[in-house]
Design a protein around this nucleic acid. Structure first.
Lengths: 213, 213
DNA sequence: CTTAAATTTTGCAATGACCCCAAAGTTTAA
DNA sequence: TTAAACTTTGGGGTCATTGCAAAATTTAAG
């Protein structure tokens, strides 16, 4: 389990590059900061940056690792007698109610959002993330519901659940971008979550109940 | 209303560039074909290509103009006593049943899909289109339902309806990409549409009924 | 401690999208 | 016929991204 010098240095270098890059992006925007500037500020060569990050956008979204599996984890961890949708809604409510920075409810998130808002490549990358979340969730639901291969239902339910997830994130992002207060936004989004739940059909709300069948 | 020589030439040049570009992309893929090659094949300078198309992706999606307003048009044209959702489902069924090339049910669409599938920038552009469709629809629904400014419902319903739309398009695209037969896919997607409708709540299905209130 | 192998960093060169500007060519309208 | 309006083009530049081989660093073997 001991970590060699080489491993530690790699991890440190990667972290340093990511941190410095994010700082520069928050300061000057995504498009205006060049990879060369990031490299210089991190005191490495441009090629080293590319050694760790396949594309410029990855420098910005580095910390968002684990987001892709989040929804799937929530579904897998649902309680006895609880459906996938109920679990997702419960976890979303918990995050919002806790004013969790994980969903953007924190001071300074507006600066983060502004960078994304002004950079088409970053918005693209976010959509790509959404897609990954959806696909991951679809696979999870197929498993958890024991659905046969041709069954379109897991895909459809995944669509509905990632829509819930996405709506919450987009709303939080939009409101924080306006410079709103996290606590205020939290309250509003809790109401929004009720609206969302009311729009889901029973079929969605009762899919993949743990223990059923 | 007479069209001058200048206008005609511009339109022709634009069309020629777009056609030749699409041909080259279908033949060799999006990434491998350079703008310079397109320009040369269309017998214009690289700068002229950029005069007409802001980005390389626009060369490929040129013909898809009008898709953004499609959903909104369907909603606006809904029948007396019909809700927004019912109108959208009805129109989608009509398109699918008619094996319409407008939604990709045509021979050769697999080549089109393959190009998109293999080119991340094209997929990004598609998501961007989806986003535009959603936002456009949200504005339309807000108007048609006479919803007040703070009301989140138009946005939520827009999310559900563009999800229906998107699901149909994605499914058609995926199946056609496999080399399936348009008529077969049409039949399957009609069934899928039934599944989709069953997943929509009454609230969604009854939003913005023409004539109500 | 020394050295060869494995791994990481770097420099260099290229490709291609995209932008800016000014010159040259074309079309319109007076 | 000609000046104004508009389009095309050439040239030059920035920057993301890639490939390659040399140089530096770390590890492990002796």
């Amino acid at each position: 389990m001991a970590e060699g010098l080489r491993e530690r240095k790699k991890r440190e270098t990667r972290q340093r590059i990511s941190d410095i890059a994010t700082g520069l992006f928050l300061e000057h925007g995504f498009v205006t900061v060049t990879i060369a500037e990031v490299a210089e500020a991190a005191d490495v060569s441009v090629n080293t940056v590319y050694n760790y990050f396949p594309a410029k956008e990855d420098l910005f979204f580095d910390r968002s690792a684990g987001v892709v599996e989040q929804l799937s984890r929530w579904v897998r961890a649902r309680d006895e007698g609880e459906s996938a949708a109920r679990a997702v809604l419960r976890e979303l409510r918990a995050e919002v109610e806790a004013v969790s920075p994980r969903i953007g409810l924190m001071a300074g998130y507006d600066r983060f959002m502004r960078v994304i808002h002004e950079a088409p490549p970053l918005r693209s990358r976010l959509w790509s993330l959404q897609q990954e979340i959806h696909d991951h969730l679809e696979a999870t639901l197929r498993e958890e519901a024991g659905a046969p291969d041709g069954d379109p239902l897991p895909g459809l339910i995944a669509g509905q659940l990632s829509w819930c997830h996405q709506t919450v994130f987009v709303t939080v992002g939009r409101e924080m971008l306006k410079g709103r207060n996290p606590d205020e936004v939290s309250r509003e989004v809790l109401v929004l979550l009720d609206d969302i739940e009311e729009l889901l059909s029973e079929k969605v709300l009762n899919y993949a109940v743990r223990g059923a069948q």
